[in-house]
């Protein structure tokens, strides 16, 4: 049965492609084939942080079952320790636990043309898109915004081919978003990944020009995990700490409390629990808007807490 929850990977290659960018290639630690992945897919790596394991998601620039997964990691100044570890500590041969590849940023099968707009390290899914579109002969145009001194790095990564519309702009001012989006043929889809300001600008410009919302795509890793909080179970008096990378349901189960669940994805409603105190952060698809507003119930499989403590009737 295909029930493998995680992958055990080993670092096969690690190299700096620029002072702040490190490219790593991971293969299966046991030498087996890796699952293939769609262009735009990411994996979440478990990396040692200062106080505990950090789970960081990285887009796969390349994903080959035999050659491995390639990702490019920027060293983050605000690093909790994940990117710092990859830049300063990681060596060939190191073993890393990872999730299965998962796709939240996908090419649209009906697009007549793909317009790709990247900013900084947001180029990573676009590199995977370009490789895919080249292999299939898909029509695309790419605009990458690079910070000072990095334009040549991205030129190298993209390795534009003759006849391709690939442009690397030094800074945001080099790109006229209105003119670019206004000039696209009908049936074009735009994909953007980079700083929130850039993605918001693409969204707003497309909306102002009357683009259908369904033709505008942005990288979004989704709301997996969040801030840690405390749970108090009113019936049993048990207090449970919910870690940032743990669901409420997982924490309740880890505390040895038996509670029903089924889909574990916020859809079926089986795990619903009454809330006595505190403010839930609803992430399910089961409760109606009215039920959410009342805040009397929560789906612990996906939802979290806005208040530091959530008291459940359990």
């Amino acid at each position: 049965m295909m029930d493998t929850q995680t992958l055990t990977l080993a670092v096969a290659e690690a190299a700096f492609v620029a002072p702040g960018l490190r490219r790593i290639t991971l293969v299966a630690a046991d030498g087996a084939r890796l699952p293939p992945a769609a262009p735009g897919a990411h994996v979440t790596l478990a990396l040692p942080g200062e106080t505990r394991i950090l789970r960081n998601s990285y887009t796969l620039v390349g994903a080959d079952p035999c050659a491995g997964y390639t990702m490019i990691v920027r060293r983050s100044e605000r690093s909790r320790g994940g990117s710092r570890h990859i830049h300063e500590v990681l060596q060939v041969g190191d073993v890393i636990e990872a999730t299965m590849p998962h796709t939240l940023f996908a090419l649209h099968s009906q697009a007549k043309k793909h317009l790709l707009i990247g900013g900084g390290i947001g180029i990573t899914p676009l590199l995977a898109f370009v490789a895919h579109l080249r292999a299939r002969g898909g029509l695309f145009e790419l605009h990458q915004i690079a910070g000072a001194g990095e334009a040549c790095v991205f030129e190298t990564l993209l390795a534009p081919r003759a006849g391709e519309r690939i442009h690397v702009h030094a800074g945001r001012t080099g790109l006229d978003l209105v003119a670019l989006l206004a000039a696209q043929p009908l049936g074009t889809h735009v994909y953007t990944c980079g700083p929130a300001g850039l993605m918001d600008a693409v969204d707003a410009t497309a909306a102002a020009l009357g683009w259908p919302r369904s033709h505008v795509h942005r990288e979004d890793f989704g709301a997996a995990g969040g801030e840690p909080f405390m749970l108090r179970l009113a019936a049993s008096g048990i207090e449970i700490a919910v870690a940032g990378d743990q669901t409420m349901l997982e924490a309740i189960e880890a505390a040895g409390v038996d509670t029903p669940s089924l889909c574990r994805g916020g859809a079926c409603g089986v795990c619903i629990v009454p809330v006595r105190e505190g403010t839930p952060e609803h992430r399910d698809h089961f409760l109606s808007e009215g039920e959410r507003a009342r805040g009397c119930h929560v789906m612990p499989c996906v939802s979290r807490s806005k208040s530091p403590v959530l008291v459940l009737d359990l």
């Binding site: 699952p35 998962h102 796709t103």
Partner: peptide, 17 residues
């Protein structure tokens, strides 16, 4: 069907339902 669709669109590789 609204809820089932939301669930199915989130089914992940390696985690069938």
């Amino acid at each position: 069907f609204d809820r089932a669709l939301q669930y199915l669109m989130r089914v992940r590789y390696g985690h069938p339902a």
